[in-house]
Design a protein around this nucleic acid. Structure first.
Lengths: 205, 205
DNA sequence: ACTTTGAAAACAAAAAAAGTTTTCAAGATT
DNA sequence: AATCTTGAAAACTTTTTTTGTTTTCAAAGT
């Protein structure tokens, strides 16, 4: 029983690198240097394994977000940090993964969708509301609208036809998008905070 | 019979984006907006289709290389241009594609290997020999050795664990690699040519 | 010596994909 | 206007692949 905790990261890497369809259970066992039997002792079927991988991935993100939420920083700084983590994380979701997920594991695909559209959007929405109370984000801004808008921004990264041909580092793309987004929602006071925060933190995600 | 020339590029894009395994014939037909029957009128089987796509890809590269070979430039300049094109081209070969190719179409995989290890290496070898005759590349350099070395450099780009985590544009990685490689093989005269050439041409591949 | 363990490999069952054929409707042809 | 052609859509068969299970066997531990 030497599999579950140690090797699940390897499984994630293989799934993410080669796609869910291409990475068969035989191949997986071969790469892990164990037998299929051993895998099936820990996971009922392939779906359970994919579920564990995706679940772990989302949980990681969830707890990183939660950790940031604890921070006693201002709303703008939190917003940037959360966005940076989100962009960084979503990079791992290649077209192949998303395609395979959607086609072969629709329930897991929906779980991913739900996580992003509900949980994440909700966190950003509340963060924007907080920013408004702190006087950093303009009152005319509708938190529900712009939190969805932000989600769509991260979606753009997942689509290879949008930015990849520019051959820019993710950090550059991230920085530009945030410059527009944050610039667009902040009050003049918030803008000062943003400029200070920006120089303080390492924006390289 | 409206398929073959027009839509083969779409097929390539789909194969390259989602992988050969994930992109089934049904899905392909759906995405192309035609029936499977129509596809099978032009291509005997899926293998023939993959062959056509890969062949087209290699031919494109082949003719770009040939066009450069005609140029009346010096050997160093040609070397850089060819390398740039090579790096740029190989980016399209995602881990999934290479994996699927190797596993499901071993003959095509070997054809790709052969193309790179023989045709491309041969071109670079002759180019380096020419550079030596032009007095731009040092005589101690063994063309056979360093042409293979260059091939391995481009291989590094295909491996996601080597450079991707740096989050640098391809152009930066390319530039650094070439700085070392060209710097390492040139005479002082060749180095001057390289510096001049470098500023003249747009290194952004 | 006797268990236990788990890799390796053979296996059966199920699923999926490839490839073929049929159907049918829209456009072209006579 | 009647007929023919074309090709998408979908139903279908066949082949291949994959999943998931079981068996075998050898090495490590008791």
């Amino acid at each position: 029983m030497s599999l579950a905790p140690t090797h699940i990261h390897t499984v994630r890497e293989l799934f993410f690198r080669y796609g869910l369809k291409s990475m068969t259970m035989d191949e997986l066992a071969r790469q892990l240097g164990c037998s299929k039997k051993t895998i099936y002792e820990h996971y009922a079927d392939k779906k359970a394994l994919v579920h564990a991988v995706l679940g772990g991935f989302l949980n990681e993100h969830r707890s990183e977000m939660a950790a940031l939420d604890q921070n006693p920083e201002n709303a703008i700084a939190k917003l940037i940090r959360m966005a940076a983590i989100g962009f960084q994380k979503m990079r791992n979701l290649t077209p192949t993964i998303l395609f395979d997920l959607q086609k072969s594991y629709p329930e897991l695909w929906m779980e991913l969708e739900r996580y992003r559209k509900e949980e994440i959007v909700e966190i950003f929405k509340r963060l924007i509301e907080r920013g408004q109370h702190e006087g950093l984000i303009r009152k005319e801004i509708d938190p529900s609208v712009v939190s969805i808008m932000h989600l769509q921004h991260t979606n753009l990264l997942l689509d290879p036809v949008v930015f990849s041909h520019l051959d820019r580092p993710l950090a550059t793309i991230f920085h530009n998008i945030m410059e527009v987004f944050v610039g667009g929602i902040t009050t003049s006071q918030g803008l000062d905070v943003w400029n200070t925060t920006k120089s303080q933190m390492n924006l390289q995600p």
